[in-house]
């Protein structure tokens, strides 16, 4: 039943990139919200909150993404939920992204000089307004480059979702390879598509980093 690797097979793989993009986008959006909460908890004045966020970050930084996927995937089953690769993959990647973005953004928030917070406090601005108008806008400028850099890692990281049966780019490659048995062609195509997704992001990250370092020099 082996069929040749042709135009059709190529298109099927290209089309599967949409699921990689969708998974990355959802994980990045969810991780953006989760990461902000984690970062704020990490710089909070409330000690238990700081420690909880630190624990969360350490766990996710200290274990492989594949194990995180497995734990969420099989954990859902234990808690009586139906096994669903979509939900498991988006949940695991969102938690993963939350931890990493949380740690990146914590550094960016702490890089804003403490005098900024003091001046805002002295003017009577309270926590929400201080963060929203003074601290976070300044932290965001520093955060752009490393955040885009992490997005590249995240896009590549979605390939692991193939192992729990989520049909994205890598999994589609495996399926086509099983039918055509031309692994070099198939995975060459898959790799090329990842590259096309990630390369512009890397360029963007570099340009933003340059722009920021120039902006801070003056």
């Amino acid at each position: 039943m082996i069929r040749p690797f042709g135009w059709n097979e190529f298109l099927i793989i290209v089309m599967a990139a949409q699921w990689t993009i969708a998974l990355s986008a959802i994980a990045f959006a969810g991780g953006g919200i989760g990461g902000l909460l984690i970062a704020l908890a990490r710089v909070s004045e409330v000690r238990p909150l700081r420690l909880a966020a630190l624990g969360f970050i350490r766990v996710f930084q200290g274990t492989p993404l594949l194990m995180q996927l497995f734990l969420v995937f099989f954990g859902m089953n234990i808690f009586g939920l139906a096994i669903n690769p979509w939900i498991a993959a988006t949940m695991a990647l969102t938690l993963h992204a939350s931890a990493f973005l949380g740690e990146i953004w914590r550094g960016c928030i702490e890089a804003v000089p403490s005098g900024q917070r003091e001046a805002a406090t002295a003017l009577g601005l309270k926590y929400y307004n201080r963060m929203r108008y003074i601290v976070l806008p300044q932290a965001a400028r520093i955060a752009v480059a490393p955040t885009v850099g992490f997005l590249v890692q995240l896009v590549k990281g979605t390939s692991l979702a193939a192992i729990i049966g989520f049909t994205e780019l890598t999994r589609q490659g495996q399926i086509i390879n099983n039918a055509t048995f031309s692994p070099f062609m198939v995975f060459g195509t898959v790799a090329a598509i990842y590259f096309i997704l990630c390369w512009p992001l890397s360029l963007l990250a570099r340009r933003m980093e340059l722009k920021f370092s120039r902006a801070t020099q003056r």
């Binding site: 003091e118 805002a120 009577g124 601005l125 108008y133 400028r141």
Partner: peptide, 24 residues
């Protein structure tokens, strides 16, 4: 008033002066 001014660098002079009166 602080030794190191602590103006908000991402805001204009006018915005520096109007933020707290508006928000507080």
């Amino acid at each position: 008033v602080f030794q190191s001014f602590n103006l908000f660098p991402h805001m204009t002079v006018l915005e520096n002066c109007t933020l707290a009166p508006m928000k507080v």
